[in-house]
Design a protein around this nucleic acid. Structure first.
Lengths: 221, 221
DNA sequence: GTCTATAACGAGATAGAC
DNA sequence: GTCTATCTCGTTATAGAC
């Protein structure tokens, strides 16, 4: 599936105690880092092997050794990104905070991406969806599904505990959160304005809980 | 709204009594139609002159006669799209409905785009922003600015009349609406699921007014 | 694991005929 | 206003040396 030619020659890159996904060699891992940054800023159709090779100071041919083609590289990018995101959500769960605080933490993940002047990888790929190879399409949808599932559970727990209030289903509310935060990133990034994102996140999450959300410096609520 | 069908080359394409923007020749207008559809579905970096020429059954060279380069074509696309969108908003204003109904109409404009399995032109370009020529960048931001200004006024009027309720500034709320609807389109399109968009729109607009919104056939909420 | 070299193709763009 | 023909460049990808 991922076409990492060989395994690590040294230690490989591991995340932690729970092993998620394939481990890439140091070079393959760095290729993914560079490609990821390029896709998140320029889009999958807006970068080339030449771009990655130039930034890494290796040749295009070397890239093909690690990832047979752009499609395989793209697939690996999503898989790694999704695994990292899932790990971040698990970390939030393990912190054992209240549902409302979990939603704040969720929004903070988006904010961190935007801080690096990047778009969410899968949000970017969602825009280019029609041009993507099938394997990438499937992976993109799975990413959103995973987000939805996690949010749904947080929302249900919050509603059961009485700390979150919302109309309609938890699923629709989860989809609203995902869509709104993705869109907030999409629009805020061209303006280079973090506050634009924060204002939307505050508005969205603010309707779910009485307490102020997301790095709320001004406590007008 | 958004993207009319085909016009004959003798009549040129006019919107109505109030003339907005430059009038294109029949051919130029059809080029814009085809290119618009391609950008909205595949992105600016996901289509080529060859694609347009093929669909129109003319040659690439003919395209260059009407639009010197891809940058100029892109600029013309945004300008026309923004003018059409502005005209649609003016039409909503002239209908003289209540603020809440205007917001519904606004969301319907997005829904119509999604119905054609397209992304908002400027939402798509926002994703590709970093790769766009300067003139296109400016035009994209102006589109969002115009949306924001219009929504801001609707929101202010609604709040003054007591038919809309929201916390914070009208500007931040306007930005929330834009971001949320753009993001809802972005995510709903890959799933090919209109309901996904509707659910988000209902949730977002529902927090602003007591009445159900957006083509709410079932008022069970 | 990385290189040189190159194939094979498509991109945006131009010149000049009709 | 559209054509044929061509140019130049960048793209993905492969073969084979080191």
């Amino acid at each position: 599936m991922v076409t990492a030619g060989k395994r690590d020659e040294t230690g490989a890159a591991r995340a932690g105690p729970s092993d998620t996904g394939p481990a890439y060699s140091g070079t393959a891992s760095r290729i993914l880092d560079v490609a990821e940054a390029l896709v998140q800023t320029r889009g999958f159709n807006g970068f080339s092997y030449a771009d990655v090779a130039a930034e890494m100071k290796i040749t295009k041919a070397a890239l093909h050794y690690h990832f047979a083609g752009k499609a395989e590289l793209g697939e690996a990018l999503i898989t790694r990104y999704a695994a990292r995101f899932a790990a971040a959500l698990t970390a939030v769960d393990c912190a054992g905070a209240q549902p409302a605080a979990k939603l704040d933490a969720y929004a903070s993940l988006y904010l961190d991406v935007l801080r690096n002047q990047r778009m969410c990888l899968c949000g970017m790929l969602a825009a280019e969806y029609q041009t993507l190879p099938e394997a990438m399409r499937v992976a993109v949808l799975r990413f959103f599904d995973a987000n939805e599932t996690w949010l749904e559970e947080v929302l249900e727990h919050g509603r059961a505990a009485g700390t979150l209030r919302f109309e309609g289903t938890a699923r629709d509310t989860a989809r609203t959160i995902i869509g709104s935060l993705e869109g907030a990133m999409l629009v805020a990034r061209p303006y280079g304005d973090l506050d634009r994102f924060k204002a939307v996140a505050r508005n969205i999450l603010g309707t779910l809980a009485p307490a102020p959300m997301v790095a709320a410096g001004t406590d007008s609520a």
